[in-house]
Design a protein around this nucleic acid. Sequence first.
RNA 1: GCCGGGAUGGCGGAACUGGUAGACGCACCGGACUCAAAAUCCGGCGGUGGCGACACCGUGAGGGUUCGAUUCCCUCUCCCGGCACCA
Length: 861
Amino acid sequence: MQERYDPALVEPDARRYWDENGTFEVREDASRPKYYCLCMFPYPSGRLHMGHVRNYTIGDVLTRFHRMQGYNVLQPMGWDAFGLPAENAAMAHGVPPAKWTYDNIAYMKRQLRSLGLGIDWRREVTTCRPEYYRWNQWLFLRMLEKGIAYRRTGSVNWDPVDQTVLANEQVIDGRGWRMGALVEKREIPMYYLRITDYAQELLQALDGLEGWPERVKLMQANWIGRSEGLEIDFQVEGAEPLRIYTTRPDTLYGVSYMAVAAEHPLARRAAAANPDLQAFIAECQRSGATEAELETMEKRGMPLGIDAVHPLTGEPIPIWVANFVLMGYGTGAVMAVPAHDQRDWEFARRYGLRIHQVIEPMDGSLVDLDSGAWVEHGRLVNSGRFDGLDFDEAFDAIAKFFEAQGTGRRRVNYRLRDWAISRQRYWGCPIPLIHCPDCGDVPVPDEQLPVELPEDLVPDGSGSPLAKLDSFLACDCPRCGGPARRETDTMDTFVDSSWYFFRYASFDNGNAMVDERAEYWMPVDQYIGGIEHAILHLLYSRFWTRVMHDLGLTGVQEPFAKLLTQGMVLNEIFFRKPESGRIVYYNPADVDVELDAKGARLGAVLREDGQPVESGGMGTMSKSKNNGVDPQALVDRYGADTARLFMMFAAPPEQSLEWSDEGVEGAFRFMKRLWRLVHQHVSDPAAVPALDPASLSSAQRELRRQVHETLAKVTNDIGRRHTFNTAIAAVMELSNALARFEDRAPQGRALMQEALEIIVLALSPVVPHACHTLWRALGRTSAVVDERWPEADPAALERETLELVVQVNGKLRGRVQVPADASEALVREAALADPNVQRFMAGKPLRKFVYVPGRLANLVV
RNA sequence: GCCGGGAUGGCGGAACUGGUAGACGCACCGGACUCAAAAUCCGGCGGUGGCGACACCGUGAGGGUUCGAUUCCCUCUCCCGGCACCA
């Protein structure tokens, strides 16, 4: 073996072995338990970033660990290849999105390979290829048949200068990102998927997802947002009744106005004869479309001059148009109770509307409505015959009243909205529909699938290039054969990522979306990806899987048995803020940090000019903050193993990870120490006999216990807790102990051999290249990747004595050695005998004795 | 604004089920080796007081429960993720 650790020599060698032996190529095998380990596939943006490296290293560690535990493990990889950045790159460089995307994939695939990931590359899936997206189209048509897909209008951001629809990301402060035009909301026809039909199922099934983090399940439950309330019709003179939904029917007597969306028919009608209203409605249509903007903007409104009739009192209730009511959500109208809803209270204060208390606290205490709304449940007052009822009684009584009248009903409502999948973009999966002047919207027949996307177009930022391409547009109506026009909208890219995990199992089937191989592999046993996908991607995938289940395509209802949400990768932000002009960000690699004598930070300067820069703290690695670190440079300099080791050691996987050049150096140093440890052992010519545990000295027994305790800890930390950082820390501790262990007697050598073999096996999932070589260096002829995961020897773990902590009144005052099987009485005696303990008891009588076996004794005086 | 999460030495983090706060690594300081430097190795390293044994303080802030709280509860501050057309 080489004396010096040289990853450039070791790593290609190990990878060659895995490739030549097809180590990670797997097929279905009923004789072994299967383990489907899946990482979220990357968007081919150009180069791998640190988040990818972190994600795929976690997946690879779990893949290799489970392989060694005897599972039949599938780890596939693919490309989420449709999307907006390809169109942006196309516009910037005049290259077709397809070429840009395929070039990126080729480069990033080389990068992934250099990380030494145990991937079955035969199964690679690329979502922009027709053999993949034809099944998007095929399933969409099935959904259309079932009524799960439907068409209606929806609101989009419209750039009036570019004459194009903008993504939320492309709207900056209400203006289009390219020309700076004021963006308008516009209603256009779109296709929707009825995810709301699955709301109840998607909510209930969360309880069964035991392998999911609680916080993700909570976020999904809140997103679905089930509520129970009443749907009530308010009569409006000379118009259709105004229908609203409320979860607080108990506050009905406190309604002092109604609020409708700008697009509501009542608002439109009232505006016809009122220029001020027209201006206000036009202004509402210019305001932002995102929920965050809607909720934080100034709440404004204007009266329509129309009244609704209060259904219980018969009093007139003024109807207002308000900028915070959304037409696309619920009925586009709400009832407002300023006394018991904070937003209504603020609106009423602003416009001098009535604030009328109808609920009081159960204890009859007074409520201060001058400082804000009182939103708790309580007892009804000022509510006619409902006075004195509590929330539940009032809900019930009022529901019965409306049900008897036929003007209202109980209703379960969801915050979740149907999924709009139409995108007015080129680089996406074409929606397989044909518009015929005679037959209307006609689905493309299955035998004409896929509707292929031309790959040589270059978008110019003004609408979809498909709409300008006759060869794509022109077609025959499948129903009447007459001339027709193809749909030019493409699908949301979340469609592509909602089922790719099925396709990895049936990757080469040209005749069906999925086959029986998917039934073998699904569900995914462990899914790993960024926390930023906790809601949308994961919810859409759960929905899509249920639709496939209901169409008989799979027996699986939930796609991901276990979920690990990895944290973001952060780095320092350095900047200068000139007196005038924009903030300039400097890459941390170009900044020197000045320290005081204790190593605490004094300041930072730009190396180039020696002048100070300001620190902006830690932030996600991004282009805009210029704080990214290229993983390729890291791999080129230190090798993949050091990159993997640092990523796994620096933080537990669910937490954000702070980048540190020094930390990488530390990981590399450990690799060198490990290498040297093995080298020293194997280059000693003294024989290594078989280990005889019974004959070990007490120092040898002590070390062997540490070896097996470490093994037990690593097994638990990787397999159960997924805290790779603590597993690695334990191995570092053990290797420090081994470096101090200089026993060259035959049994000392034998113990060293056992310890080094266990270390190499235990680290092989994390640093597989180096361990491949070290295993052979230790005299083993097998490949470490094919070895079984070792088990800790219970005999080695046994202890004769224990050290217990002794507290007086909960404060640490001493330690005692006791036999491992000591009785409580013996422990009490030993604890009381400790001189320091006696000092703190100061002769006071023992009031209570708390004994936690194996841990501590607490003497309360 | 709403939903979810986080805050522990100079820094990243550890403490798994309420039981020894600071494992492991980094930075820093001291020493060995060297003509010297780098690399490597050895030692120290939360704060305050003390020659020392040791004591007191200390887990974002304030309060509570408990024999005992980084861990549980309440209030607050700041930071991060998501908010439906970025992926």
